[in-house]
Design a protein around this nucleic acid. Sequence first.
DNA 1: GTCCGGGTCA
DNA 2: TGACCTGGAC
Length: 307
Amino acid sequence: MPSVPAPAASTPDRFEIAKALNDWFAHAARDLPWRAEGTSAWAVLVSEFMLQQTQVDRVIPRWTTWLERWPTPSALAAEEPGEAVRAWDRLGYPRRALWLHRAAVEIATEHGDVVPRDVEQLLALTGVGPYTARAIATFAYGEHHPVVDTNTRRVLARAVHGIAAAGMPKPSDLDDMAALLPADPTEAAVFNAAAMELGAIVCTARAPLCDACPIAAWCEWRGAGYPDNAPEKRPKQAKFEGSDRQARGRIMALLRRSAEPVSRETALGAARGPDPQPRDATQPQRAYDSLLADGLIVELEGRARLP
DNA sequence: GTCCGGGTCA
DNA sequence: TGACCTGGAC
């Protein structure tokens, strides 16, 4: 199939779009604590780990107490990983807490307790992928990179490509963003943040507020009359109710609040939940074993605890 | 009630 | 490509 080249924004448009979006961000951006002047690179890294799958409102309190307790990578690295898992609380996907602890150990031992500035070095840290590496380099250090998360991909799909929704992530997403990025690193960093912010609060997936959009004048999707031309979506997410993830979450919740190790039987009981007739009798054991395999729990003499 | 989103790893 | 957690939006 012939591929249609992306309509590269002409240079004047590129300048105008960047100015319009950055001007909007200057007054419309949410006042998030990790955006404050003087936020350390470590604090930015922690915020990006927590925000990977979690809404801002749930992250703020956890982020604040986390950094009071562990203001440097080495402070966290000195603790048992289970302490990170406990402090993670109910942010979800607790493997991220383990990854953050491992990244702290890596930074403390291999980088002199200084969060790397280089994208390649950041990518080598546990739990840091393409998005997080560029976000840290850009927002913590002011490096000039395109930063693309799913909010930005939706903005690019609509504004640049005239498509209602983003398809699967592609390497060219970074090129699309780079084509719009101001040359000045500070302006570029603001533009990266502004594109994500626009996707989060204006150019939303379900009910975009196009009348409030600062770049509506340049939006290809708006210009085409909001066609319903979204590409095929990912397979629908499995139900959470009754899932292995729910069973794992119940075990983790029990262990987070248990000062002492709990018996395997107690943990398996927690996995079953309140339902007296679980549909899948093998699920508790499967959830327990998968948590062991992930290193989220350890077992000693028939008793389970955080690592 | 049901849908939904999110980046990384294996 | 599928698994991973939770709570808020609809």
